[in-house]
Write a protein that binds this DNA or RNA. Sequence first.
DNA 1: CGATGTCTTGACCCCCATCAATCAGAGTGG
DNA 2: CCACTCTGATTGATGGGGGTCAAGACATCG
Lengths: 272, 272
Amino acid sequence: MSKSIQSRQIHVRPEPQTNCCDCPVRASALFSAIPDCDLDFTQTHRETQLVAPAKSNLFFEGDQPQRVYTIFSGWMILYQTLISGRRQILRFGLPGDFIGFQRNGNGDVVYSAEALTEATLCAFPVPRLMELMGKQREVVQQLFHLEMRDMNICQHHLLGAGRKTAEEKVAFLLLELFYRSRMQIPEVAGDAMTVDFPLTQDDIADAVGLSKIHVNRVLRNLVKQNLISCERRRLTVIDEVKLTEIAEFDPGILTTQPLFNNMARSVFGSAP
Amino acid sequence: MSKSIQSRQIHVRPEPQTNCCDCPVRASALFSAIPDCDLDFTQTHRETQLVAPAKSNLFFEGDQPQRVYTIFSGWMILYQTLISGRRQILRFGLPGDFIGFQRNGNGDVVYSAEALTEATLCAFPVPRLMELMGKQREVVQQLFHLEMRDMNICQHHLLGAGRKTAEEKVAFLLLELFYRSRMQIPEVAGDAMTVDFPLTQDDIADAVGLSKIHVNRVLRNLVKQNLISCERRRLTVIDEVKLTEIAEFDPGILTTQPLFNNMARSVFGSAP
DNA sequence: CGATGTCTTGACCCCCATCAATCAGAGTGG
DNA sequence: CCACTCTGATTGATGGGGGTCAAGACATCG
């Protein structure tokens, strides 16, 4: 059931020339677990690379795209809308994230995906992903890791949506995105306190389930308390400790499971 | 980080005698995709069967249980709590559900699990599950299905928590559990409008993020509108259409993905 | 330079949380 | 059989957190 609000059109320009596996964020990408020597295989299975302009929709809830996507660069939002038009952002897609895999009983994708900034993506035909999963156990592992991390984040947002105050919700979201931003290029930005932050206050509102007016008040209040500062598309965390305390934020939810990793390693070998 | 509120102790009595694979809900269980002839293998890998008394906790957020569990009978709640003690139910575990697999970066389970009614569970050591996943592709498929369905449900609750009114949230939860209850024994109860419903109004409140007082008012209101009726541990849906409309509920989120199924089938063979 | 999108602030008020009291049913023990 | 207890359901009164409406400030961009 596609939603009625589809004012923004899909604009994606295929650029099959570029090598889609030159991913700057291999560390967190779907195929990061694959030894370099096996990458030939994945390369033969890559499809087109896409560039999604800012504000374009990659797909809408209810579509049945034949591909899944890995984000190389840019930020995306994954959201659902009610008939009334009210939007809820389910999670944010940052480089390395894998989207479009999750379907419902009809094979529909269950959320819409919109590029917040210009974003580059690598598209993979679903059957080829399945083939990969059959041949390379690491893909299965990595897929589980990504899905579980997203599930963790989703559950924590649910906890917040139901049981936190406005300030706590906003603080949590800021910290989540702050950490995820930094984790992308650990060697350069591992301890920088300022990150790029392309969200509007409207986006924040739709992510935490508040009105944009109230988000504004909360943000101004956090600034007044000298916990953060934010000016055009940049976010600075000033008092990380206090903010973490307010949000009850645990960075552990953003990492994958060494337990699973270790246990899996003993069973899953390399590709046959 | 274990929460401070641990007033309820863990009480599980192992009953290794019983065959844990006599699951009455094979249709939705983890190992449902495995052909009967291969069940010998899974049986050799089963561990103890547990009985969790009503109100006992199977594990707490922050624990590192060495096993994962499949629910055979009974209802469980999976929840997180804030330091203030406020509880948010993330999802409900019904027979066939698989719990304890999802971990964070430290290998901790990310939610607490409590039996709402007396529940029987089959415990599987994690390494053996991994072994199974390596040998039987259907286990991997089924695991993805279960995880994705849970993710769907979680996301829809997030949508509701952020953007729905109290009445819409409650209606959604009732329908979700109504359908899931009926799906368990399709041949007998496929079209019954009354199901067992062991939740207290307190539980509903913690699931949808409202106060129990307000949940009570909303329920009484739904009854007054002649949409449902509920008396001690039983729920009857009177006007399914109207209720579905209010909740914007889509039963499709509860089923697994035929798309994934079909695509997977062409690649994954039977066990080697 | 309008035009559009985003941020900011104020005024008003409603949905729902909180507090408090009562009631019904299920055990439980004598 | 009947007090006693405990959990859960119910209803009323009150107030606050945050939604909604409106208007203005500010920035960016064709």
